[in-house]
């Protein structure tokens, strides 16, 4: 399972994005983080070739949220055979936008002195959940009413034995904010909001019944195509 950061935002363990056999000996593992509003791509480069690697550079294809490197890929010294280096690449969201399928798909090109290599990875959507995503209560109620029912999507989060307060605080660590909490007929109803870096708001209702490990998540958004990935992010944060 993943590890938390100081701010509480969920960080998945690094996985292999580019196996050495597909990149003439260069292996790339990585994960994504968001801490205090700064998004990073945390990379591990390993040289499994017989020759030294130099002249690294990285580039992203256009993507749904305009994610782009905010600095060049800095590998300070040549990478010798069997050597591994850890790099934290800062990202911003001012790059070119193109809607990807799935929405969180990122296509990456990495070059070194040997060749150019390409890979795709999926980023957890919460890296684009902003810190000021708590919607004012009156606006929440008006927006909830205003978004048509066709735009509501419902999901089950199974096997999540957390109570409402634990759920609330864990989600807040990843910029999903509880706006109101009510108890109706024994079940807790959390009303939550989050905002994406492109200004899209997502409103949520999370139902928690005592003794039932399955939660019901209802999402309302004017851009309902984000709902599936938002649901997956809830699952990832709550189950890890």
């Amino acid at each position: 399972s993943g590890v938390g950061t100081l701010s509480g935002s969920y960080v998945a363990p690094k996985t292999v994005w580019l196996p050495a056999m597909k990149a003439k000996g260069l292996e790339i593992s990585g994960t994504f983080t968001r801490q205090g509003g700064t998004i990073s791509m945390d990379l591990q480069l390993t040289n499994k070739a017989l020759q030294v690697m130099t002249d690294f550079a990285i580039q992203f294809n256009r993507n749904s949220f305009g994610l782009a490197p905010a600095a060049p890929l800095q590998v300070h010294a040549p990478l010798s055979p069997n050597q591994t280096v850890e790099i934290s690449l800062p990202l911003n969201t001012v790059g070119s936008v193109m809607k990807m399928e799935p929405l969180n798909n990122l296509q990456v090109a990495v070059k070194n002195n040997i060749d150019v290599f390409y890979f795709s990875t999926l980023y957890p959507l919460h890296i684009v959940f902003v810190e000021d995503g708590k919607m004012e209560r009156q606006l929440f109620l008006a927006t909830w009413k205003d978004i048509p029912n066709e735009n509501e999507a419902q999901f089950q989060i199974r096997d999540c034995p957390l109570n409402a307060d634990a759920v609330s605080s864990r989600l807040q660590g990843s910029n999903i904010f509880t706006v109101a909490k009510r108890n109706v007929e024994g079940q807790d109803m959390l009303y939550q909001s989050l905002k994406l870096t492109n200004g899209i708001w997502v409103l949520a209702e999370l139902r928690i019944q005592p003794g039932n490990p399955n939660l019901t998540l209802s999402l309302k958004c004017r851009a309902p195509e984000v709902s599936q990935q938002v649901f997956q992010t809830y699952e990832t944060i709550l189950k890890n």
């Binding site: 209560r137 109620l141 007929e185 009303y191 209802s218």
Partner: peptide, 20 residues
Amino acid sequence: ELDDGLDEAFSRLAQSRTNP
């Protein structure tokens, strides 16, 4: 919290969602 009517509005929302 100030009693601005919003507490009541959230209760009504939660109620309506439980018993539509």
